[in-house]
Write a protein that binds this DNA or RNA. Structure first.
Lengths: 223, 223
DNA sequence: TTCAAATAATAGTAATACTATCATAAATAA
DNA sequence: TTATTTATGATAGTATTACTATTATTTGAA
């Protein structure tokens, strides 16, 4: 069984919906490759245009600027993560197990994508780790937040917070703990790969290390 | 008693030491104001030059680019934090108290600076919260890390890790926990001020909220 | 077939991120 | 004291970025 998932991305993020045309879809797919390859700072619409054999002007018809494009990609990812969490928790009743599944989803890399039609989730995950904070750590955060462009992140956070509260209804900070899990899983993966002295990684793969660190700390907090 | 502290900042960060001239010092002081006011993305050497009645060319004689200038400021801050931690822990023997002092330093705003000669630590702290991740979340991280430009951050992390290990020598991840404390204190302060739905803040000031969240979580992990 | 919408092709602008040159002022060394 | 180094200012210039605008062409839907 093969299936593809679509999410309704907040219309305020784009000028024209990239899902509505082949060019738009190609734009998103290639921007994932390019942002991964160049990093967000070096990524430009000019370079993307060349990559998709189109023009800057065409890209600007879809997105106001590259910040919005990144936001689009991250919204897709956050929606996808919430879906994945829901999916993987289906029929799992053991409350501890439910949390372990979440930690595992947050800390492990995705397998290399095979489908031509799908976004490359492995790269997407790396982009989230290295670039996601750049969408909210901007001066205009209050302005852009008004358009509810962070709703998918907040929803994911809310969903995880629910599972935390199911496990321990006395715990006072389920949402803060939820964002801490998410952000820490990014940091620790990034640090253990790039600045290992900021972590306690020894030999194991950094995903596995991060998983153990987070699982350990989560249950010490909640038990 | 008034005193000023100087730190030896890694020479690889600058082309000419800004501490070595009045112009250099003014440059750093004003860049703190400007980065705070505009955010790092909108901050440019041109704008800074106007602010200090100098020229872009002059600033380029001190720093290769604005990323290096930010790195300089953050190195100063990390060194300062390590000094502060050392200072505030002096003569405190109670191990729990030592950790509480650290959490308090990490989560509370600094008072408005009065001295004309000193950097504005309140603004500096806000810059650290909103901009610090931008110095390491870049493609060239491996390159720039070779010059040991993150040493002050690693040292601060190491120092806190020691205090963690003093308190509980069995805990397996003192460094990862240390970076988690630092990064989470930034995130939670930023989120509670700007994206409160990602946290559990209710009424209290966001510094106080963050302090309680982190203290709670730290002792649940270590006890 | 006709009409509207999307895209390509092209041009242009202001700002950014630099580099280079030369004159002058200030500090220092002979 | 003069000579010389050094820092800065003044100015110019370049390539790239981040857009906006215009027109022609293609595509697809009525």
């Amino acid at each position: 069984m093969e299936f593809q998932i679509k999410f309704d991305i907040n219309e305020k993020i784009f000028l024209r919906n990239p899902e509505s045309s082949e060019l738009g879809k190609l734009m998103i797919k290639k921007s994932i490759d390019l942002i991964y390859e160049l990093g967000f700072e070096q990524f430009t619409f000019k370079k993307l245009a060349i990559e998709i054999n189109s023009t800057e002007a065409s890209i600007y018809r879809y997105f106001e600027n590259k910040h919005r494009l990144l936001l689009y990609i991250l919204n897709w990812y956050w929606s996808y993560m919430e879906f994945l969490v829901t999916f993987k928790l289906e029929n799992v009743t053991d409350k501890k197990e439910r949390l372990k599944i979440i930690v595992s989803l947050l800390t492990h890399e995705f397998p290399e994508s095979t489908s031509q039609f799908d976004y490359n989730k492995k790269l997407l995950n790396q982009i989230v780790i290295a670039e996601s904070s750049k969408v909210y750590l901007v001066k205009e955060v209050a302005e852009i937040n008004k358009d509810e462009v962070f709703k998918p992140y907040k929803d994911l956070c809310g969903k995880i917070a629910e599972v935390i509260s199911e496990y321990n209804s006395d715990y006072k900070y389920p949402r803060s703990l939820s964002t801490t899990l998410i952000e820490t899983s990014h940091h620790q993966q990034y640090f253990s790969a790039n600045l290992p002295k900021l972590t306690d990684i020894s030999s194991k793969a950094n995903s596995e290390f991060t998983n153990q660190f987070i699982e350990d700390f989560l249950f010490k907090i909640l038990d």
